[in-house]
Design a protein around this nucleic acid. Structure first.
Length: 580
DNA sequence: GGCACCGGCCAC
DNA sequence: AAACGTGGCCGGTGCC
């Protein structure tokens, strides 16, 4: 292979010529920082295999990259990258370049890894696993701002060059494991995810600050009160002779409760809740803990995440964040923001804009209906009736309009719980009935939905006996089964039921992300968040209605592509802020 | 001081 | 006691 170093605008034409005939090109960036807003691209490496071009972007101007941008944005040649989200963000932010058709060796490796937590997926790990080749990553964290060394250039070129043979090997594996459809959806979701991260979520810090002040005031009063009462019970005094206790220490709090005759084993809410009715101190403690959770996790930490210039929060989305295929998000996680109006309303559109919020209606139960082909469940969804009400009506043999609130609630608990592999014991405690009653309810449920019962059984069996499950798209989750370990066997049986459903839901959301992203071209709108069955788009006020229609259409289409026998419903709302 | 673990709890 | 799946994050605790 040869390396061609390009250090001026004049050199770009030669690169374009060299790349045009290629079917595949390896693409990689070296940057001065991992965060696109804090660092720049130093090197852009492009490899056809025999030829590797290394462009020094400190010395090549953005306009000169135009023709190269067209190659990168197109469908051919296919771009091969390792963790393309990173390069996509850098190229979009600093060079205004979008990525077209791509193959991501990182995501491919994760898909093939099928959730194995032992496997690592850095480029060197993947190159070693699939090509048996040692890759030197010691230059990765060197200083990319100054005069570049021969070693740095060779390292940079090698990273791009290896992507071509790596793709070939990974494609063989993907075909062998029948993971083509899942890979395609993942690859096509990279650019929407990258752009969502770059956009960030607008946040009203002023509003949140005043809410935090109020909550802190309320917490301070409770803290004073509880420290007095519980600290006194403990008999602990500080230097000034005042009662002392750490309310954040479950051990100390349990101890204090014991001394007050409150016989609890832990301080978790479900344990304390029954006492709260009789004991004001327990009630106040629970109130304190609620505020403490809110403030410690979301209060100041959220404010510190707000970018001062843009008033936006930039989070990391992990496209394959879980073995089932779901996204996860971190620093901060925007998938676990409490569903409280005073918090959610701070995630809003910038002045003059709108948030368009769309979520799938009961997508996991629809997936269960599709997998099981249960005639009664299918019929309920086709008729468009309230599924939980319909379930209750059939279980309790009452007309649908006579279903009581408790009956519907019990049916709902079962509908949801069974997808997680819930047993009679868990059901009994959730709906507060004796165990035999819960067992009877489950038996009745399975008489109504016989095919659901069969599917759940066979899903658990498949997991246990084949050691893997697949989603509708064919994504695989593999587990090691130790048949001697009873707890683990039970766990795998529950996973066998849940993972295909949860994973299929993730498949659908990712497909939707791509369809929506593409359909929003030309509309003043961009995706700002996604939460498992929900996509949030920020738009201008003028384009909100169009955005809503595009969003609904994209999500429905994605759902219909992947589950064909159950209607898909998407609820869409236009709002100033992130409220349901 | 950093790391791992735990109890606890937020989202879907 | 734990109890139905997937994550991330907090403060406390104990270890090196």
């Amino acid at each position: 292979m040869t390396i061609q170093l390009v250090t001026s605008d004049a050199g770009v034409a030669g690169v374009v010529t060299g790349l045009q005939a290629a079917d595949y090109i390896g693409v990689d960036c070296e940057t001065t920082h991992l965060n696109p807003r804090q660092g720049r691209i130093r090197l852009l490496q492009l490899s056809t295999g025999p030829e590797t071009y290394v462009l020094d972007l400190f010395n090549v101007s953005k306009p000169a990259l135009g023709p190269l941008g067209e190659i990168l944005a197109g469908d051919r040649p296919v771009k091969i990258l390792h963790n393309a989200k990173f390069d996509a963000k850098m190229l979009r932010h600093h060079a205004g370049i979008g990525l077209g058709r791509l193959f991501d060796t990182y995501l491919a490796s994760r898909i093939l890894g099928a959730g194995d937590p032992e496997r690592h997926h850095g480029l060197a790990d993947v190159a070693f696993r699939y090509l048996n080749q040692q890759l030197d990553k010691s230059f990765q964290k060197t200083d990319w701002t100054g005069e570049l060394t021969e070693g740095q250039l060779k390292y940079a070129a090698a990273d791009a060059e290896i992507l071509l043979p790596l793709r070939s090997r990974l494609v063989e594996e993907i075909k062998r494991e029948r993971l083509i459809a899942a890979s395609r959806v993942e690859f096509e979701c990279v650019v929407p995810t990258a752009e969502m991260e770059l956009t960030g979520i607008y946040f009203d810090a002023g509003r949140w600050e005043s809410t935090v002040d109020d909550l802190e005031g309320a917490r301070a009063i409770l803290e004073l009160d509880l420290t007095g009462e519980l600290g006194l019970a403990l008999g602990q005094l500080d230097l000034f002779g005042h009662p002392e206790i750490n309310l954040n220490s479950p051990a100390q709090v349990v101890d204090a409760f014991h001394r007050l005759g409150i016989d609890v084993r832990s301080t978790r809410e479900s344990e304390l809740a029954p006492w709260a009715a009789r004991s004001p101190v327990v009630a106040r403690f629970l109130e304190f803990r609620g505020l403490q959770k809110l403030l410690s996790t979301y209060g100041r930490p959220l404010l510190e995440r707000v970018d001062a210039e843009t008033s936006r929060i930039f989070t990391d989305f992990h496209q394959i964040g879980t073995p089932t295929g779901r996204f996860s998000s971190s620093e901060p996680s925007v998938q676990q923001i409490p569903n409280l109006p005073e918090i959610r309303r701070c995630f809003c559109a910038p002045p003059g804009g709108k948030l368009v919020i769309a979520d799938y209606s009961q997508i996991e139960l629809r997936i269960l209906a599709d997998f099981s082909q249960d005639p009664r469940m299918l019929e309920a969804f086709h008729a468009g009736v309230d599924l939980h009400r319909s379930t209750a009506s059939q279980m309790f043999r009452v007309p649908i309009e006579q279903v009581t609130r408790d009956q519907r609630s019990a049916a709902k608990q079962i509908n949801f719980g069974l997808m997680y592999g819930m047993g009679a014991g868990a059901l009994a405690s959730r709906i507060d009935v004796p165990l035999p009653e819960a067992e009877r309810l489950l038996a009745t449920y399975f008489q109504v939905y016989q095919r659901v019962a069969e599917w759940l059984r066979s899903a658990a069996d498949t997991a246990l006996h084949t050691g893997h499950i697949r989603t509708k798209l064919g994504r695989v989750y593999r587990f090691r089964v130790d048949h001697q370990n009873r707890e683990q066997v039970a766990m795998i049986q529950r996973l066998g039921k849940n993972a295909p459903i949860q994973g299929t839901s993730a498949d659908i959301l990712k497909r939707a992300m791509r369809l929506v992203h593409d359909a929003l071209v030309g509309i003043d709108a961009r995706i700002v968040n996604c939460v498992h069955d929900e996509i949030v788009v920020e738009s201008s006020g003028a384009d909100a209605e169009r955005t809503a229609e595009v969003l609904r259409q994209g999500m429905v289409t994605a759902g219909q592509e992947i589950i064909e026998t159950v209607p898909i419903e998407v609820e869409v709302k236009i709002s100033e802020d992130w409220q349901k």
